[in-house]
């Protein structure tokens, strides 16, 4: 038996496998297919200060070994989340990390302060990386200064662990990582989706209603690993690795490269119960390799 318990920035996780924001809603729709108590935790779909309708369809298109999405953060807003979504999540036997996004640093801080009063939230993940938000998201995450300001504002407004979710769509992700750590981030989640586009040459139109979207799925795993390796060398805070994980072996590759925990994202769309299989797979692979604590693997990549 391998001990899978993982401490991530003060959050005690049953195991290092969480569901990624935007791929598990607010938990409820997945419950018929997946025993959520088998996971380390779930990260909610992004909430914003006010409710958002999201982008015009089409919002989804399949690409080679992955997909593009341009959902546009359709969500019930902070108040709607607390009233309608939180009671279900609060009753789950797993750690709940709430993902937030807002158009300004001050509004991020207001959201964090409000969530600080909600009993049972394990942490806040700050989405400074959505490619589908014209008034925030990646706008912040592409600038070290703006990233630092948003994270510092959130850090000052809450007692909860603060996790900055980074975009891969930057020149120097290590600089962004250092900026969020300077701002007080307790951890980093990476990567969000890669900016992408699909085109129909016959109609000479983009397929997505929003023209561009975010690429996810196995296609982006090598990109995620390379960026994880860079960030792991640049900062000392724990990292949640994500990007194209569909199997236990994928997850183990992220751990070895420097992730303390991993998030399963797009894979859940195809295998709604898959994250629990990944937990079981990590345990059996570790046991077979004689690893007594999963944490022993973290950042052991020899280069």
């Amino acid at each position: 038996m391998t001990d899978l318990r993982t401490n991530f920035a003060g959050i005690e996780l049953r195991n290092p496998v969480l569901l990624a924001s935007g791929t598990c809603g607010y938990g409820e729709e997945l419950a018929p297919f997946l025993d959520l108590s088998r996971l380390g935790g779930i990260v909610t779909k992004t909430i914003t200060p006010e409710p958002r309708a999201g982008n015009a369809p089409p919002r989804i298109v399949e690409t080679a070994a992955g997909m593009l999405n341009s959902i546009g953060l359709q969500n019930p807003g902070l108040q709607g989340f607390i009233v309608d979504k939180w009671p279900y999540l609060a009753a789950l036997d797993t750690k709940i990390i709430v993902n937030i996004a807002a158009p300004t640093a001050a509004l991020h801080a207001e959201m964090a302060a409000r969530l600080d009063d909600v009993e049972g939230i394990a942490g806040i993940e700050v989405n400074i990386s959505s490619p589908n938000m014209k008034d925030g998201g990646m706008l912040f995450g592409c600038s070290p200064t703006a990233s630092n300001e948003v994270i510092a504002a959130v850090r000052a407004a809450t007692r909860l662990p603060v996790i900055a979710k980074l975009t891969p769509n930057v020149t120097d992700i290590a600089a962004i990582a250092r900026a969020v750590v300077d701002g007080g981030a307790d951890g980093i989640a990476m990567i969000n989706t890669l900016l992408g586009m699909a085109v129909d040459w016959r109609t000479r139109k983009p397929i997505l209603g929003n023209i561009t979207g975010g690429l996810s799925g196995p296609a982006i795993k090598p990109v995620a690993l390379a960026l994880l390796w860079k960030v792991h060398q640049a900062v000392d805070v724990p990292i949640m690795g994500l990007g194209g994980i569909t199997s236990a072996e994928d997850a183990l590759e992220f751990l070895v490269t420097g992730a303390t925990a991993v998030q399963v994202g797009t894979a859940t769309f195809i295998e709604p119960g898959g994250a629990a299989d990944i937990v079981a797979g990590i345990e059996s692979h570790c046991a077979a390799a004689g690893i007594s604590r999963v944490g022993e693997l973290v950042g052991t990549l020899g280069v």
Binding site: G22, L30, F33, P272
Partner: peptide, 26 residues
């Protein structure tokens, strides 16, 4: 176009006609 088929991805949407009567843009 559909990804999950059970509601989590919110990808396969259609615009509702009676938007004015809804409590929120959500």
């Amino acid at each position: 176009y559909m990804a999950c088929g059970f509601g989590v991805c919110v990808g396969c949407v259609v615009e509702r006609a009676n938007k004015e009567s809804l409590p929120s843009p959500y």
